[in-house]
């Protein structure tokens, strides 16, 4: 096993613990936005899609690269925008009153 793989395994295992720890106290009302937010974060696959698309040099790799970039970009952009739409609606009593009085 080489060094790089060992490092990667270390990151992997630590990230599991961080991922569990960081959301362990989330209230029920935020489950939907949180799911949507994590959904946007796995759009990081766009980085992978760009890496494989950049070197495309045959019809097959061009096709795979193009579809992968489209799908991944949809994931990232749609994920963050829809999460934001949900969250902009959480307001307290004061804010909602000021908006109504406008």
């Amino acid at each position: 096993m080489n060094n790089e793989l060992l490092n990667e395994l270390t990151f992997f295992v630590l990230a599991i613990f961080v991922g569990i720890e960081v959301i362990s106290k989330v209230p029920t009302i935020l489950h939907t936005p949180l799911m949507s937010g994590t959904n946007a974060i796995h759009g990081i696959i766009l980085v992978g899609a760009i890496v494989i698309a950049a070197g495309a040099n045959s019809p097959v790799t061009v096709a795979i690269g193009l579809v992968a970039v489209i799908l991944a970009t949809t994931n990232v952009v749609g994920g963050f925008v829809v999460t934001d739409r949900m969250l902009e609606m959480f307001k307290g009593r004061q804010q909602s009153k000021t908006r109504q009085s406008k």
């Binding site: 990667e8 990151f11 992997f12 990230a15 599991i16 613990f17 961080v18 991922g19 569990i20 960081v22 959301i23 362990s24 989330v26 489950h31 949180l34 799911m35 994590t38 959904n39 974060i41 796995h42 990081i44 696959i45 980085v47 992978g48």
Partner: peptide
């Protein structure tokens, strides 16, 4: 990719 994907995998499982 490893870190972000794993974060989602772990937190998503808990969720």
């Amino acid at each position: 990719l490893i870190v972000a994907g794993t974060l989602v995998g772990a937190s998503g499982s808990l969720l």
